[in-house]
Every structure is written in C-alpha cells, then in structure tokens.
Design a protein around this nucleic acid. Structure first.
Length: 428
RNA sequence: GUGGGUGUAGUUCAGUUGGCUAGAGCGCCAGGUUGUGGCCCUGGAGGUCGUGGGUUCGAGCCCCACUACCCACCCCA
C-alpha cells in the first residue's frame, strides 16, 4: 500500500512528461487561434453542482463520484468532468453579462471511481472547450473543427468523427415515448441491462451489444426531431461540409451526461477496440439555466489526454525529444570541484543547461555518466587545467575538442559554442 | 458492480513430471594504463520467488484465501 499509487492513478515520469507538455502546448496554441481563453476551476466542487449539472440518473453521479464530507460538514466532490465547473464559474462571475459568446478551454484532472482498464483510470486528464451564449450551429461546427484540427495537427490517422442529434427536451420526450412503446412488447425478451435502460434512458437499448441487433426497425431519434432541432442538425452538416470535415451520422451516440441537447459527437479511434473514444462532446442548451444561471446555450467537448497519448503511440506519432544537456563538467580533486561548481553556476545563469558530479566518480565513470546524460559537451577540470588556465571542451558527438581558458573569456567561448539557449535554459 | 488473466533481481523474462547454494539478457557499480564516453572483455552488488495459510519428507512450481496489476463487460475521456 505504502509504495503503491492508489488504484487507477498513475505517475507521469520525466521520461513521459515531455509528451504531455507537447500536446498541452499544441492544444493551447490551437485554442488561441480559435480565440478560446483558458479557465482554471477548482479540483473539487460542491457535490450538488454535479448532481444538478451532470444529472442524477447518470452512472457518473450514481456510482462514480469521489464524494466526501469536509471538516466543515460540506459535501465535496472531486470533479468527474469539466463542464459543470465552468458553467458554475460562468454564473458565479457573471461572465454571461459580458459580450457573448464566452469561449473557454481548460486542461484538468478528473476523477471517477471506476474499475481501471486500458484507457480508463480513476484519475485521468482531459482537455476541454466550452462555448456559451450562441445557439448557432456554426459554433457547433467550430467546436468540432477545433477538435478535429487539433487531432489532425498531431498527425494522428484513423480517427472518425461521429455526429448525431439527441434533440431537445420536447422532441426527445416525444421520441422516448415512441421508443418505449416500440420496446414494451419486446421487454421481456431483453437482457437485464436493457430492462434498466428502458426505464433510465431507452435510447441506450438500441446500442446494446446483445439486443441491439434485433431492434433494427426501432424508431430513430433523427426521425422525431422537431423543426428547430432538425434545421440545426442539417445546418451543422452544411457547415462541416463547407469546412471539408468528414463525418458519419451515428444515431447511436447518446452521451452519458443528461445535459446534452441537439448536437452530440464523438471522435473515435479505429485502431482501438475498446475505449476508442478520444473526444466526446455536444450541445447543452439547458445546462446553464439548470444550474441556476440565465437561459443561455452552450457547446463543448472533453478530450481524454491519456487516450490521446495512447492513440499517438499506436500511430507512431513522433514527439520531439526534450532538449539535451548542454554541458557536463567533470571535476578532478577538491580544487577542480570548486572550480566546476563555480563554472556550473555561471553557465547556468547564462542560460546553459549544465551538470556535474556529486558522487565522487572517477574521470572515466564521469565520462560514461556524461554519455548517459546525453550531454552535448564535456569539460574536464583538474589540477592541470587550473594550473595552466586551459581546458578542453569535448564535443561528444564526434569527440572533437576545443581549448578554452578558465577565465571570463573562456566561459564566454563555451557559452557561444553551446549557444542556442532557450527559455528553459537548455539547448537543442 | 460482473467476468477472465497474471504476480520470480531495477527491468524483460527462463525456471523441465514439486527435489540439492533460484538463473539469463538489459540496466546499475567497479576494473581492463597513470585523468576522458559510446563497442568489447572481466568481476560485483541486487531476489522475504506478491502476502498469509495448507498439502508434502521436500513448493517458485499443487490447493485455498487475500492483495496488486492487466484485460473485457457495464459505462465513459
């Protein structure tokens, strides 16, 4: 226990962190281009926000929330998704009173008490985007385009965009009624899961792996859309066509959160059998009002970062390696060490990434070490060098060396040689 | 919540029908000329064989329980 991370959580080690940084940066860049602004919300919220915002009939609320009572007796929940907190922030800070639309993006950890498996953890991470204040289907297309664009820009192939419309409360009720009537006589032959689905969310019955196949003549939501929803769905498709974004209509997309209206979409990976959904989202026109705000519409998505990284791995997408170490300073003896420490400090201040010995290794061991560290250059500083005020800087790639003095001008030479310092102080 | 699989050095794995000090590759450390890496060679450290019971003269190998991880279902990112 002591030495195990809690079930369903994972350390992200230095050997992987650069991949996270890479996709985070890409995501932030593209959000900037689409004029979405970053928002950061708390890691935990009042439980009632999710009860209301996610929906009391959902699996998330019913069995997956990390809920606890804090010392003040408040019921607190680690956020299981990103939309409800943003909606809360929108309302609390009166952002809806400013010019619209309000467009946000975020990168968050999310928590769901589930049994972990491939592509599913208890703490996972997602990118998200939310656009409030416009019911225009062009915003739906923009949000979808952002996701498609982002994933495409990473060089991932084999992703498919699935879209659907789940209607509005009016037409969905009409549809659910029709569907229940259709299912009712068949109910006794359906699996036990479907009997539950019949009550909770009959649309899911159509997607059942056991029963779905024998229900081919079931009524479809798309045939029950009201005029408004129908027009919205059609114009969304027109926009997608204008943008040249391929899609398939998938009437089975239901989405697990109660708040979705009209547009629902998923981006799924074809090379992954389960947990292939990398990104899922849709429109939620009733949510802000449901949470106690004004009646304004919204549209957004969540994109699983772990799943994204998995898909990238499967696609052999190459991620630029982190910068190499600029210089390794190998001291010999006590005087050498003092000199080395001083040089380290100076060069680091000049923006060079540098490392030295702290284990008293032999010179040979230090060279091996420098090689392991993948250092671009090595300089040895011992009694000889100090006495002569002259040292060799060795380029590890080809073994060539350059003599430098150990004074200020020598340091300057080293700096210029290694050059190319970046903001984080390392070199490429 | 349901079902399946796995658990041997840091790591990837071997360990024959249960039988003598539990092995290998990689990694790590140290040597192979006195102060210079990558290749090669040599040596070394490192394992309560997931945990606890049981069967047996004897268990890493068999049985039970627990636990952890992996995978699938449900559902979702």
């Amino acid at each position: 226990m002591l030495t195990n991370a809690p079930r369903g959580t994972k350390d992200i080690l230095p050997s992987d962190v650069y991949k996270w940084r890479y996709v985070e940066e890409k995501f932030m860049n593209i959000c900037g281009r689409y004029n979405y602004k970053e928002i950061r919300t708390p890691t935990f919220e009042h439980t009632e926000l999710f009860l209301r915002g996610v929906g009391e009939t959902t699996d998330i609320v019913n069995k997956e929330m990390y809920t606890f009572e804090d010392k003040g007796g408040r019921s607190i929940t680690l956020k299981p998704e990103g939309t409800a907190p943003v909606v809360r922030a929108l309302i609390e800070n009166n952002i809806y009173a400013q010019q619209q639309p309000s467009k946000f993006f975020y990168a968050i950890p999310a928590f769901r008490y589930e049994k972990p498996q491939s592509g599913r953890q208890r703490e996972f991470h997602q990118f998200g985007v939310e656009a409030f204040g416009s019911g225009d289907s062009a915003i739906d297309a923009e949000v979808i385009a952002l996701a498609v664009n982002f994933l495409g820009g990473l060089g991932i192939k084999g992703l498919k965009l699935h879209i659907n419309s789940v209607g509005c409360p009016k037409c969905r009720n009409r549809y659910n009624q029709a569907l229940r009537e259709y299912l009712k006589p068949k109910l006794k032959d359906l699996c036990s899961d479907c009997k539950v689905r019949f009550e909770k969310n009959p649309m899911r019955v159509l997607d059942c792996k056991i029963d779905g196949a024998k229900l081919t003549d079931a009524p479809l939501m798309l045939d029950y859309l009201c005029d408004d929803c129908k027009a919205h769905f059609e114009s969304l498709q027109e926009y997608l066509k204008v943008l040249g974004i391929d899609y398939v209509i998938d009437p089975k997309i239901v989405r697990g959160l109660d708040y979705y209206t009209k547009t629902a979409f998923e981006i799924v990976s074809s090379n992954k059998s389960s947990q292939g959904t990398v990104c899922g989202g849709g429109r939620y026109d009733g949510l802000v009002a449901e949470c106690g705000g004004p009646d304004i519409p919204g549209m957004g998505f969540g994109l699983g970062i772990e799943r994204l990284l998995n898909v990238m791995e499967a696609n052999n997408v190459k991620i630029p390696a982190p910068p190499k170490l600029g210089l390794y300073i190998a001291p010999i003896g006590e005087k050498g060490k003092k000199n080395a420490q001083k040089m380290l400090y100076t060069l680091r201040n000049m923006g060079i990434s540098a490392e030295s010995d702290y284990l008293g290794r032999s010179i040979k061991a230090q060279m091996k070490y420098a090689n392991k560290l993948d250092a671009n250059y090595v300089i040895v500083i011992g009694d000889n060098e100090i006495q002569n005020n002259l040292a060799e800087v060795k380029r590890m790639s080809d073994g060539s060396t350059v003599s430098v003095t150990l004074d200020e001008s020598g340091i300057k030479t080293i700096k210029d040689m290694i050059g190319g310092s970046t903001d984080d102080g390392s070199t490429r």
